[in-house]
Simulated assay, not measured.
Amino acid sequence: MKKILYILVLGGLMSCQKEKETVLKEDIQFLKIKNGLIESSYYENVESIKPIDGFIPNDSTAIRIAETILYKVYGENNIVKQRPYNIALKQDSIWCIQGNLPEGWEGGVFYIELNKNNGKVEKMFHDK
């Protein structure tokens, strides 16, 4: 009697394991990669993380991000010459970063605003 009970329990566990394997195979099909990305439908119901301090939590991070963007648009040499930058946090959510020219130099400087909470570039220009 114990043997029969043992076989039934073992058989039940094995069928559960097979069912679990089937689900995993279906999940893998669902995550089928197209063009190097997981299908976007996978992310429809996934809530985005929102860091407590925002995506750009401090001035040093803001400067690194700004430089990456500004180098690409205006050239690294041009931006580096404008150090040290002026930086301020406006309304507790917008990093404002502006270039600086040495006294007596003529020309314009860059200005960029980065949203601390979502990382978006709110404004960017270079005056003359």
Rank of each mutant, 00 (worst) to 15 (best):
E26C: 02
K128P: 03
D59E: 15
E122Y: 13
E113D: 15
Q98A: 12
E67M: 04
L10G: 04
V46P: 02
C96W: 02
Y111M: 03
F55S: 11
M124N: 10
G11P: 10
G104F: 09
G54Q: 06
Y42K: 05
I7Q: 09
V23I: 15
G99H: 06
P51W: 08
V80I: 14
I112W: 01
I69E: 13
G12E: 06
V109A: 04
Y71T: 07
M124E: 12
M14D: 00
A66Q: 06
E26N: 06
N118H: 05
V23C: 03
G36F: 05
V23S: 05
S40H: 02
V23A: 14
Y74E: 04
A88R: 06
K34Y: 12
K34E: 15
P84N: 14
R64M: 02
I87P: 03
G54C: 05
N77E: 14
G99F: 04
I94C: 02
V80P: 01
S60F: 07
P84E: 11
F110S: 00
M1D: 12
E122V: 12
V23E: 06
D27A: 10
K116H: 02
Q17S: 10
I97N: 07
N78V: 05
L5E: 12
L101T: 06
I94A: 07
K50T: 10
E113H: 12
Y85P: 09
I49Y: 07
P57F: 05
L89T: 02
G119C: 07
I112L: 13
K120M: 14
E122F: 05
G75F: 02
L89H: 08
P102R: 08
L114I: 04
G119F: 02
W95A: 01
L89Q: 08
G36A: 05
Y43M: 13
K20L: 06
F30V: 10
Y74S: 03
E103N: 15
E106H: 15
D59G: 08
M124R: 07
I33D: 15
K50M: 11
L37Q: 01
D59H: 10
Y85M: 01
F55V: 06
N100G: 10
S41M: 09
W95Y: 00
L24M: 13
I87K: 13
E67Q: 12
Y85R: 15
K120N: 13
V46Q: 04
E21H: 12
